[in-house]
Structure formats: C-alpha cells, structure tokens
Simulated scan of single mutants.
Amino acid sequence: MTLSQKLFAECLGTFWLVLGGCGSAVLAAGFPELGIGFVGVSLAFGLTVLTMAYAIGHISGCHLNPAVSMGIWSAGRMPTGELVPYIISQILGALIAGGVLYVIASGQADFSLSQGFASNGYGEHSPGGFSLTAALVCEIVLTFIFVMVILGSTDVRAPAGFAPLAIGLCLTLIHLISIPVTNTSVNPARSTGVALFEGGWAISQLWLFWLAPIAGALLAGFIYPRVFSPTVKDKRKAKNVVADAL
C-alpha cells in the first residue's frame, strides 16, 4: 500500500469513529424515552472500530488514534516517517466528523453547544464530577490497556482474524468504565474533533486528553515487546509452521 492510501484510510476511519461514537452521544444518548444511554454510546464507539478494522485494517492498520499510532511506533511496528502523517490524517478526519456532526446537530431547534457536544472534561465538566487526578489516572491506565490489547491481538502469534473483535470490545468496555469519569477519550483526535467546536472549557482542558492517552500508549509500546517478546521456542515453532505451509 502507498502512504497516500494509508493516510486516506486513517482519515476515513477516524471520521467514522468520531461521527459514529460522538454522534451517538450527541444525537441519541439522551433522546426522551428511547435514548441509548451510556451502554449505547459505549457500543457505538466499539462498533466504529470493529467495522473499520475489517474495512481498512489491511490497508493502514486501522489506528484511528494518535495515541495508538505512537504506541505501535514505540513498539517498533511502525516506520518513524509515517508517524506524523498518520497523526495529521487522524486529526483531519476527526475535525471533518466534528463539522458534519455540528451541521446535523444544529438542525435541531433547541440545540446548544452548552450541552457539551460529547467533549471530554474533568472537574465540573466530568459527567460524574471526577477530579483532574482521577481523569489523568483513568485515561493513562485505560489507554495503556487498550494499546496492550491492540499489540497482543495483532501479534503474529495470536489467532488470525479475531483482532478487530478484541479491539472493538475492548473499546466498548473502556467506555463503560470511563464515560462517567471523562466522557472517555483514550484518543486525542476524538477529543480534538469535538473540542474545537465546543470551544471554551473544552479547549482549555484538551491538554489532558493528549497527554494522558499518549503517556499510556507509549508505556504499552515500551512494555509489550520487552515482556512478551517471542522466545526461541516460539520463533522455531513459527518457522516450522511456515515451512510446513510451503
């Protein structure tokens, strides 16, 4: 695949993640009587990753997240020259999705950005009133686990074809845990894509939703290859499987 194909895939995939996940929160979560609530929003985010992992995973790896790209890069699975272009494409996709979502949402008569526009926050802007420290720890730990699951499920030793399921379900679980804490980021692009439309407090708190996910992802990228690197026996087994296939 060419780099331009990979970048378009990342832009498209991140667009779908933000439109599907944040769109479900803004348009459907609190709808009277039929609202999908926290569980529905959690599933929406998981389903966006699941569907795109099957659609573009073979093209770009389906990162859809600057923190994930940085974690994969730090694990030695991504060329350094692709890292910044990936991140730019992801942010662009998120911003386009935020714009599309704003156009749709503002078509409602009583729409107001003061409702949050699915932005991430802490303190008075946390859905459950959680502190900055709680938000920081939550985002670091959950991003760390998310990237560990990504690295593990895409390891050549893992069962083939199941990575999208593991990754999508992991993101669903992460949202079930942390929507009350931060409205769940674990993804700087997702946070940026809606924060720039919300403005004000969302932008002033955006630093945390870059710092914490990146820290968790880099930690996972550092730990995974060092703790779970293949043993000599694993390598011999893999070599024999390839030889048998030939």
Rank of each mutant, 00 (worst) to 15 (best):
T2H: 08
L3E: 07
L3Q: 11
S4P: 02
A9P: 15
E10D: 07
F15Q: 06
F15V: 07
W16G: 03
L17P: 06
L19C: 04
L19G: 05
S24K: 00
A25K: 06
G30K: 00
P32C: 06
P32T: 02
G35L: 03
F45D: 13
G46K: 14
G46T: 14
T48G: 09
T48P: 00
L50Q: 04
A53L: 11
H58Y: 04
N65R: 13
P66D: 15
S69F: 05
A75C: 12
G76F: 08
V84L: 15
Y86I: 10
I96A: 14
A97Y: 00
V103T: 07
I104N: 05
G107F: 13
S112E: 05
G116S: 02
A118F: 08
N120H: 12
G121F: 03
G121Y: 02
G123N: 01
G123Y: 03
G129Q: 11
T133M: 12
T133N: 15
T133Y: 15
C138D: 14
F144V: 02
I145R: 05
V147R: 09
M148P: 09
A158M: 01
A160E: 01
A160Q: 10
G161R: 02
F162R: 07
L165F: 11
A166D: 13
I167N: 08
L169E: 00
C170D: 10
H175L: 00
P180I: 04
S185Y: 07
N187F: 03
T192N: 07
L208S: 07
W210F: 15
L211Y: 03
A212V: 09
I214M: 11
G216C: 03
G216P: 03
L219S: 01
A220P: 00
Y224M: 03
F228N: 11
V232F: 07
K235T: 07
R236C: 07
A238V: 06
V242M: 07
D244T: 06
A245I: 15
A245F: 15
